[in-house]
C-alpha cells in the first residue's frame, strides 16, 4: 500500500490544512479570522514541504557518531527543503504580525473589523 507511509499521510494532511486555510480566508468576513486562515495556509505549506524532504528509514541531517561518515548520503533525509521551511516560518511570523497591525489600524479608523464595511474603493 503506497499511501500508507508517513510522507503520504502528512502530505495529505498538509494539503487539507491548505484547503481549510483557503476556506477560512474566503468564508469569513472578520479580518482577524481571515488572518487565522492565512496562518493555517502557511502551516499547511510547511507540512507539505517537510513531507517532501522525508525519506524512509533515514535520520535527521545532523552528523554524529551514529552515522557512518563514508555513506552519509544513504543515511540522511533531504536538508534543502528543511532549510527553506526554517526561513519560511520566520518570515511567516513577520508577515502575520504585519497583517495584524494593519487590521488594528483599520479598526482604529473604521471601528469595525467587517470587510464588507470597508467600501472606500468600491465602485
Amino acid at each position: 500500500m503506497k499511501f500508507l507511509s508517513p510522507e503520504y499521510i502528512s502530505m495529505a494532511a498538509g494539503f487539507l490544512v491548505i484547503l481549510i486555510g483557503i476556506w477560512g480566508i474566503l468564508a469569513n468576513k472578520n479580518l482577524i479570522r481571515m488572518i487565522i486562515g492565512f496562518s493555517l495556509f502557511d502551516t499547511g505549506i510547511h507540512i507539505v514541504m517537510v513531507a517532501i524532504s522525508y525519506l524512509k528509514d533515514r535520520t535527521a541531517p545532523i552528523i554524529d557518531e551514529t552515522i557512518n561518515t563514508q555513506e552519509i548520503a544513504k543515511q540522511i533525509t533531504d536538508p534543502v527543503p528543511q532549510a527553506l521551511v526554517l526561513t519560511a516560518i520566520v518570515i511567516g511570523l513577520g508577515v502575520t504580525a504585519l497583517m495584524l497591525v494593519y487590521a488594528m489600524k483599520l479598526h482604529k479608523e473604521k471601528k469595525s473589523l467587517d470587510i464588507t464595511k470597508f467600501n472606500d474603493l468600491k465602485w
Binding site: 507511509s5 503520504y8 525519506l55 541531517p61 552519509i72 548520503a73 540522511i76 533531504d78 536538508p79 534543502v80
Partner: peptide, 16 residues
C-alpha cells in the same frame, strides 16, 4: 508525487 527513493542531485552534493 512518487515518493523519493534517494536524495536529488543538489542534496547529494551537500551531503557528500
Amino acid at each position: 508525487f512518487n515518493g523519493n527513493e534517494d536524495l536529488n542531485t543538489t542534496a547529494l552534493h551537500y551531503a557528500e
